[in-house]
Design a protein around this nucleic acid. Structure first.
Lengths: 201, 201
DNA sequence: TCTATGAGACGAGACGTTCCGTCTTGACAC
DNA sequence: GTGTCAAGACGGAACGTCTCGTCTCATAGA
């Protein structure tokens, strides 16, 4: 019974201000103290403008983070492929470690993850818009390695990806251990041992 | 300047009622709708009694979950050790899958994890009281396997544990894929391939 | 041994505050 | 004119603090 708003008339300026304010406030005060009213005040925007375009706080955070990813360098789509799988993976994993340590990233990513844990719809949206494409790029790199005989040809790439990334992700999310470049390297090495092709077949 | 309350005079009955109410309310309405006032009302307890003994909602959830673990069968301390590492691990991993699927566990564990993501103090408490002891039991089993020559003697057991459990945990927490007994088995198999001793040394 | 007294935890709930999500207003743009 | 905008008033929910009067229990005086 309610009219959906007309996106053509949406103020891009306000949209940007809201996403920027959300990102800044998370970084400054943490997710627990983030409020819609705070975002509106910081952005110089009416609360209704936020409620008109986003269904939940989680959705705002998601878009804020999505904008951050999209505005960044277009490196997310393709991973390095020098032919040396071990070296390439170590570069990527070390980069991931560095990214997790960046305070500007850490706050929003933590907030988004916390929201996702209790919101299946947001989890699906995340997989579709953010996680999915990145995972596809990673799997493409692994497929190349399979063709080059560096990885077992019958390996389950979803499982492979989880094997490689989940330990890193868990250590960061639950703060269960130090996140160092050496750890990233060790993870790559044990991953390769698990997934390398069988000598005899 | 404030006096800490005297634990000797604490009402065990109220404590139990609060933890039980917290658990029931999470299971019934989800974590998002859980309130301190709701817990107090359900438990037949004054709000101050909660605030007197717990610093945060997360701490209440933590204790509620801790009590659940402690009251359960005393199976958490030792893992099966039949000598067959692969079979033993599959039993444990399949049990973990089943536990994650149990609605009575799922709600509180998700709530606790969400809280932990944004609360380093709670994360530390979790590791000390819940995660740590369980991990030690798991590592003890892996050490036995090392002695039996079933696992690389120089393997980093912290890394090994993460390799085995983090993919399972991530799939459940982020709902990024189906959690089946077959998946648990596949995980064990690839884990063993990664961690088995080198033939030549 | 008996009692009474004081400290402190208890259930109950009032209180001011913050934030929620909705609604109203007037300005401005298309 | 119609619809979005900034600003903010509004009622409701939950917060965390507080003040009641009741209770339990350990200590001490009789």
């Amino acid at each position: 019974m309610v009219k959906p708003p007309n996106p053509a008339r949406r103020s891009e300026h306000s949209r940007q201000a809201i996403l920027t304010a959300a990102r800044e406030l998370i970084a400054e005060m943490g997710y627990a103290k983030l409020t819609i009213e705070g975002i509106a005040a910081r952005a110089g925007v009416g609360k209704q403008t936020i409620y008109r375009w986003w269904p939940s706080k989680g959705a705002v955070i998601f878009d804020a983070f999505l904008a951050l990813s999209e505005s960044g360098p277009e490196q997310g789509v393709a991973l390095p492929d020098t032919g040396d799988l071990e070296a390439d993976l170590k570069v990527v994993m070390r980069a991931t470690v560095a990214e997790f340590a960046d305070p500007a990233f850490e706050g929003p990513i933590r907030a988004l993850n916390a929201e996702i844990v209790n919101d299946p719809a947001l989890a699906a949206q995340y997989r579709e818009k953010l996680g999915g494409p990145v995972d596809e790029a990673k799997k493409a790199r692994l497929r190349n390695a399979q063709r080059a005989g560096q990885l077992a040809a019958d390996a389950d790439l979803d499982l492979a990806l989880e094997l490689l990334y989940a330990p890193l992700y868990q250590r960061w999310l639950l703060r269960s251990g130090p996140l160092t470049p050496e750890y990233a390297d060790a993870l790559v090495e044990v991953f390769l041992k698990a997934m390398r092709p069988d000598v005899v077949r």
